[in-house]
């Protein structure tokens, strides 16, 4: 007896695969597994909004809430999303996107991400932050913590050079300020990246382009309030 001689059975099998049901957790996910394998990382729409759409979106968002808001753009994903600040813990704050991914920062400098895959688990950035906020050139060490494929923490040690690169006037959302632009060039074993920051006279980072890690690349964050 062979399966091929029984088309009726075969159709039944296919139907069952599509209709496996029950209330046990984690069962009947054959289709999801197939989808997951075919589409492991790109779950985000590949089209960027136009400048006009963006302005409209920002205005609407600012009118709708009193909370701190920001705009984030992960370059490798070609995606722009609104972030809302949801939590403060001492100098740290966490910002969430509508699809429940988060970025956490220490006074504007990114120290972790969650839900992106290959997340930045933690970062120690105090020396860099000190120079950036006071708008000084200099050198500083920072460390990033990632996970490896076996869920062990891996520490990346970096040494960074911070330089002032210019000044300009920034106007976006409710932010209108004269800003100083600084760059932070970091190198470590097998990696190098350059973060840029725009800092207000009061020492607030209102716009920045920061490196999340080898997989996720750079994220640009624009504070809107």
């Amino acid at each position: 007896m062979s399966i091929h001689k029984r088309p009726v059975t075969f159709i039944l099998i296919t139907l069952m695969a599509l209709t496996a049901c029950g209330n046990q957790p984690d069962r009947g996910k054959a289709l999801e597994i197939a989808k997951g394998l075919a589409n492991r990382t790109s779950r985000i729409s590949p089209t960027l909004p136009s400048a006009e759409e963006l302005t409209q979106g920002i205005t609407a968002a600012l009118e709708n809430t009193e909370k701190p808001l920001a705009l984030a753009h992960i370059e490798d994903r070609k995606n722009v999303t609104l972030l809302t600040e949801v939590s403060m813990n001492g100098p740290y704050s966490t910002w969430v996107s509508p699809d429940r991914r988060t970025l956490s920062e220490q006074q504007g400098m990114i120290i972790s991400s969650r839900g992106l895959g290959a997340d930045l688990m933690a970062a120690k950035v105090d020396p860099s932050l000190q120079l950036i906020r006071t708008k000084k050139s200099g050198t500083a060490d920072r460390t990033h913590v990632y996970l490896d494929g076996e869920n062990h923490e891996v520490v990346m040690r970096l040494s960074c050079k911070i330089k002032i690169s210019g000044t300009e006037t920034l106007s976006i959302g409710e932010i209108r300020s004269h800003v100083t632009e600084l760059s932070e060039l970091c190198t470590g074993e097998g990696v190098s990246f350059e973060n840029t920051y725009k800092v207000t006279p009061a020492g607030r980072i209102v716009q920045s382009r920061q490196w999340l890690g080898a997989k996720n690349g750079y994220v640009t964050i624009q504070k809107l309030r």
Binding site: R40, V96, R100, D119
Partner: peptide
């Protein structure tokens, strides 16, 4: 030893 999605791409935890 490697994972296609290191740490998984589940949504973020509650702060």
């Amino acid at each position: 030893k490697d994972s296609p999605v290191i740490g998984g791409n589940d949504t973020a935890p509650q702060p």
